[in-house]
Design a protein around this nucleic acid. Structure first.
Lengths: 90, 90
DNA sequence: TTTGTTGTTCGATAGTTATCGAACTATAAT
DNA sequence: ATTATAGTTCGATAACTATCGAACAACAAA
């Protein structure tokens, strides 16, 4: 990947991480050490479910999280590969 | 530093790096391997000097750059310590 | 089939950010 | 003293973002 292309991706990732609530989500997922549902995360953050959904969509879009769907429930986890590639040591 | 406190600082740094022109500035300073003036950087980015000044103020505020003033000229360089602390491997 | 649960999408809105040119400060040069 | 250079600050503005509730979709349970 060329530098400029990689920088665009980096910019996107930084933008996604530049929101305090999204960084909290990352932290919550990291500390949970297991998959969590959107609802579980939303509760801890005191945000409406639509807002939580909005944030998780952004996280998913840049590849920071994985989603696994089981019935109507979505289980979230961190995508460590992206962290290691763009944010080693984070 | 407590986790939450560090996260606030991280959020600030990510916000500052989440702008494409600011990331370019970082890249330009890194590749120059020497101090540059605001004017030199501004030329390469095709931005007005007020806009460049605005961006550099943000970079300086979060500690990503150093400034050295000589007469009316300001010389800019990266603050590697901040990069190593918050963005190791970047 | 109706009801409840989990999450998404939409429209509105308040707040934030990037950008510019104009006016300004500080310093150097003529 | 006037002029030129380097950068900052201010006011305006267009674009973007986070947030919410309402309406919706998918599935499970009763």
């Amino acid at each position: 990947m060329k530098t400029e292309e990689a920088d665009l991706k980096r910019t996107e990732i930084f933008k996604v991480l530049s929101d305090h609530n999204r960084l909290k989500m990352i932290r919550i997922l990291y500390q949970a050490k297991r998959e969590l549902t959107c609802g579980e995360v939303g509760e801890k953050l005191n945000l409406s479910k639509s807002t939580v959904s909005y944030h998780f969509k952004l996280l998913r879009t840049v590849g920071l999280t994985n989603t696994r769907k089981e019935a109507q429930i979505k289980y979230l986890s961190l995508n460590m590969a992206t962290f290691q590639e763009y944010l080693p040591g984070f």
